[in-house]
Amino acid sequence: MNSFTYTRADSVEHAVDERVAETGARFIAGGTNLLDLMKETVEKPSRLIDITRLPMTSITETIEGGLRLGALVTNADTAYNKRVQERYPLLSQAILAGASPQLRNMATNGGNLMQRTRCYYFYDAATPCNKRQPGSGCSAIEGFNRIHAILGTHLFDQEGRALEPQCIATHPSDMCVALAALEAVVQVTGKYGERTIPFAEFHRLPGNTPHIDNALEPDELITAIDLPPNGFADNHMYLKLRDRASYAFALVSVAAGLELDGDTITNARIALGGVAHKPWRKPEAEALLVGKPTTQESFQAAADALLAGAQGYGANTFKIELAKRAIVRALGQAAKLEPTE
């Protein structure tokens, strides 16, 4: 861990000012990922701005009829919040599928969005990694990539010719997969004031700049996450597949939400975790379900469409088929055709 200074912010403005004043400064709240990475010397902030005392610690109603999750509300408090459990059970389920009770008690909603990949090579400064050190190479593509991405890794030049990918890391969050499915909106404040970022645009694909994880400007601070009114509370499922029963990152996860009229699907959302640099959605695949009956065939068609263009890199190729099966299962469970265990 490098040497750094510490500032306790007493207002959002103060926090942003401190960040603007020092390029190497970082915000810290739960610290569960940042300190982890600092101990690995992957992150080396010159200053930590402690934002834990800022007034972003509540869950409130939005005028649209949704909920606003304060950025500093812990993952545990969010998951166990009564309104979240009743109106957004998919989100609650996803949060509780992640990490451990201890970590969920520490990690904040804003911090969850800022989690960095669990790629072995990113974490180990002994190996080349374009995300950690741009231009150094990607060790995962020809290395051990069982936990890596199968979607969104392609890179094309201006003439549309395929280039070698720069990074096949995945985003590790469970919560974000549910937020993607729910089409949450991220509220941020920076030196030029406030703005909103639709969830689909918050995280990004690696492209030529895999060291950049998301659309946040360096001076911007996440203040809240807004959930739209529709929480798919009646028909939802968060299905997580991993290498042990708990306390492990997803190999593949599915956040599924359906609206039904009898057994006809009227609206569908599917987001995937563990398969790409961001929670993966494909509105065309969701549209395929609308107007269709809740059958295996409908679900399979959506799964195939979602995974269209997926590419394996050897050890992770199994994820393509696994993801399809997981989607079919999760949709079946969301439609209550199947028990949820």
Partner: peptide, 19 residues
């Protein structure tokens, strides 16, 4: 490293003492 902070369990390794 689990300890309780204000009655809630956390991992003491992933927080700074000063916080």
């Amino acid at each position: 490293c689990t300890v309780l902070v204000d009655g809630k369990r956390i991992n003491a390794c992933l927080t700074l003492a000063i916080m």
